[in-house]
């Protein structure tokens, strides 16, 4: 049915770096990020776009990388968990999650942090209600929801203190 697509050389901008990969353009972005570019922040959870563990930012907007074909990311700016910190300095959102001890098993945290990052770039000072709504499609089976909401609140404070805009790139 579909004419088979040969692997092709694709150029991706991941974490402020131009990367070149050879892949079937229909390959999920997640596979390329983890296997070819060694960005293991995004996790393989359900593979169906349901759980959110694979969330990355594309042009600053949340994306479920397990259902986004890699070709859709060409020409856009991809940011993974690895791309948040600047050198040794953690992103305020990461810092807040550590300070609030928001992890139990930690598998969902990539998605929680990246989605929170996307939220804070739109709403620098969200209400509890907005945080819950934003994270409603990110699943956590350990039950650290309360800590996670607190972490996002703290992240907003840290961001405000840093005086910097939540700049996703």
């Amino acid at each position: 049915m579909s004419v088979p697509r040969p692997p092709s050389q694709l150029s991706l901008n991941v974490n402020r770096t131009e990367r070149s990969v050879c892949a079937d353009p229909a390959t999920p972005l997640l596979y390329v990020l983890r296997n070819d570019l060694e960005c293991n922040g995004p996790k393989y959870g359900c593979g169906l776009g349901q759980c959110g563990a694979c969330t990355v930012l594309i042009d600053g907007v949340a994306a479920r990388s397990c259902v986004v074909p890699v070709r859709a990311a060409v020409g856009h700016v991809v940011t993974t968990l690895e791309g948040l910190a600047r050198g040794e300095r953690l992103d305020p959102v990461q810092q807040a999650f550590i300070e609030e001890q928001a992890a139990q098993c930690g598998y969902c945290l990539n998605g929680m942090i990246m989605t929170a990052k996307a939220l804070l770039s739109m709403h620098p000072d969200p209400t509890d209600e907005q945080i819950r709504e934003a994270l409603r499609f990110n699943l956590c089976r350990c039950g650290t929801h309360v800590e996670i909401v607190r972490a996002v609140k703290r992240a907003a404070v840290l961001l405000g203190q840093a005086g910097q805009q939540a700049e996703p790139r």
């Binding site: 594309i58 042009d59 907007v61 949340a62 994306a63 479920r64 986004v68 859709a72 856009h76 989605t115 996307a118 939220l119 739109m122 709504e133 934003a134 409603r136 499609f137």
Partner: peptide
Amino acid sequence: DQGVPMFG
């Protein structure tokens, strides 16, 4: 109308 805006 739910969650955060998604790419695409």
